[in-house]
Simulated assay, not measured.
Amino acid sequence: MNLDRLNPVMLITGAASGLSAAAARHFARRAQGGLILVDADEAGLETAADAIENPPERVSTLAFDIGDRERWAQATDFIRGQYGRLDYAIVDASAAQSAVTVTDGDLITWTSTGHEHIALTLRALTQLMRSNGQGGAIVVIGLAGAADVLRAAALDGASSNVRINAANQGVAPIWRNAPLFQDLIRSERDERRAFKALSALPNSLARYEGHLFELIGQLLSDDCPATGATLVVDGGYAL
Rank of each mutant, 00 (worst) to 15 (best):
Met1Asn: 10
Asn2Ser: 14
Leu3Thr: 09
Leu3Pro: 05
Leu6Arg: 11
Asn7Tyr: 11
Pro8Leu: 11
Pro8Arg: 08
Val9Lys: 06
Met10Val: 06
Met10Pro: 01
Leu11Pro: 00
Thr13Gln: 06
Ala15Met: 10
Ala15Val: 06
Ser17Pro: 00
Ala21Thr: 01
Ala21Lys: 05
His26Gly: 04
Phe27Cys: 08
Phe27Val: 06
Arg29Ala: 14
Ala31Arg: 04
Gly34Asp: 01
Gly34Phe: 01
Leu37Ala: 04
Asp39Tyr: 09
Glu42Ile: 05
Leu45Lys: 02
Thr47Cys: 04
Thr47Val: 15
Thr47Met: 10
Ala49Val: 08
Ala51Leu: 11
Ile52Lys: 09
Asn54Asp: 15
Asn54Gly: 08
Thr61Gln: 15
Ala63Thr: 07
Asp68His: 08
Trp72Lys: 04
Ala73Lys: 06
Gln74Phe: 02
Gln74Val: 06
Thr76Gln: 15
Thr76Ile: 13
Asp77Gln: 12
Gln82Ser: 13
Arg85Met: 10
Leu86Arg: 04
Tyr88Ala: 10
Ala89His: 03
Ala89Trp: 11
Ile90Thr: 00
Asp92Asn: 15
Ala93Ile: 00
Ala95Val: 03
Ala95Gln: 01
Ser98Tyr: 01
Ala99Asp: 07
Val100Pro: 03
Thr101Gln: 14
Thr101Asn: 13
Val102Cys: 12
Gly105Thr: 03
Gly105Met: 08
Asp106Ala: 13
Leu107Lys: 02
Ile108Met: 12
Thr109His: 11
Ser112Lys: 14
Gly114Gln: 00
Ile118Gly: 10
Ile118Arg: 02
Ala119Tyr: 12
Ala119Glu: 14
Ala119Met: 10
Leu122Arg: 02
Arg123Gly: 10
Arg123Lys: 11
Gly133Val: 11
Gly135Ile: 08
Val139Cys: 08
Val140Tyr: 03
Leu143Val: 02
Ala144Met: 12
Ala144His: 09
Gly145Asn: 05
Ala146Glu: 01
Arg151Gly: 06
Ala152Ser: 11
Ala153Ile: 06
Ala158Met: 12
Ala158Gly: 02
Ala158Thr: 07
Ser160Ile: 02
Arg163Pro: 14
Asn165Val: 08
Gly170Phe: 15
Ala172Leu: 12
Pro173Cys: 06
Gln182Ser: 08
Gln182Thr: 10
Leu184Phe: 08
Ser187Tyr: 01
Arg192Ile: 14
Ala194Trp: 00
Ala194Pro: 00
Phe195Asn: 00
Lys196Tyr: 00
Leu198Trp: 01
Leu198His: 03
Ala200Gln: 09
Ala200Lys: 11
Leu201Met: 15
Pro202His: 05
Leu205Gly: 01
Arg207Met: 07
Glu209Asp: 15
Gly210Asn: 09
Gly210Ala: 11
Ile216Lys: 01
Leu219Met: 12
Leu220Ala: 05
Cys224Trp: 05
Thr227Ala: 09
Ala229Tyr: 11
Leu231Ile: 13
Asp234Lys: 14
Asp234Ile: 07
Gly235Val: 09
Gly235Pro: 07
Gly236Asp: 04
Gly236Ile: 08
Leu239Gly: 07
